[in-house]
Amino acid sequence: MTPDLIYGLTGIAVFAIGLVGALCAQDRLRRVLALKLCSVGAGFILVVAAWREPPASPDPVPHALVITGIVVMVSATAVALALIRRLQTLEAEADE
């Protein structure tokens, strides 16, 4: 097994775990975390795409893409967390 294959399979596995979590989890926070797992898995695949048999230097483009992806995901997570907090406040108000 070459490192890129291991890395790639891991990526797919991580994505799959995230997918199951996103679809099945009940807790709001867990679903956010599951989505984060998905994004990590997808990131793995892009990183693998950059891999080149040494001594060739890796392809820089996927690295740029992964960084962009991380930034996008960070902002998405922030929005999701903000919404969850807001919803909790609203629900707490309604219960009172």
Partner: peptide, 25 residues
């Protein structure tokens, strides 16, 4: 509803991203 939409939307985008990764591969 917005949170539900958020989950679906991000999941959709991530599935798309996964596809993008495979295409680049």
């Amino acid at each position: 509803a917005g949170l539900e939409y958020m989950y679906a939307s991000i999941l959709g985008a991530l599935l798309f991203l996964m596809g993008v990764g495979f295409v680049y591969l």
